[in-house]
Amino acid sequence: MHLPLLDQTPEQRAKDAAPGFMLTKLAEWSRDTSLWPVTFGLACCAIEMMASTAASYDLARFGSEVFRASPRQADLMIVSGRLTQKMAPVMREVYDQMPDPKWVIAMGDCASCGGVFNNYAVVQGVDKIVPVDVYLPGCPPRPEALIDSILKLKAEIGKGKR
């Protein structure tokens, strides 16, 4: 668990004791420890995403307790699978419906760059449609890789960088 306040020296604490500092730190901590993804499984990577939520690789212990079906209640979109031209406007709409702050993980090669499918039907990387925070290569990436990407994202959020 990432507790920035306990890691600081007293000097640092005094230096950073600006008004609102505690609340900001509290907000960052709460955001990074309960990242709730929206169910956005598109293709094969979605199966590995489901495997990472299952018992062997339990994603819930890192805070992603539930995958929310409604984007209004989620803050993380894990785009798992190939995004096609027909699905792109739908994805943008789902992304727009998520309230701030929100993050996007492009899971897999197809989401990151179009993957194996360099053709007319697949959008060559979801960063053409939504801003991506973490790119996760793999076809499909292992559940541990997905967990690693979520932990990296949490570290960034916890430091207030995202």
């Binding site: 179009g114 499918f117 039907a121």
Partner: peptide
Amino acid sequence: DWVGHPLRKDYPIGGE
């Protein structure tokens, strides 16, 4: 609203 018929031989493969 797609224009063209992708599997025809004269339709390019597309992509980048």
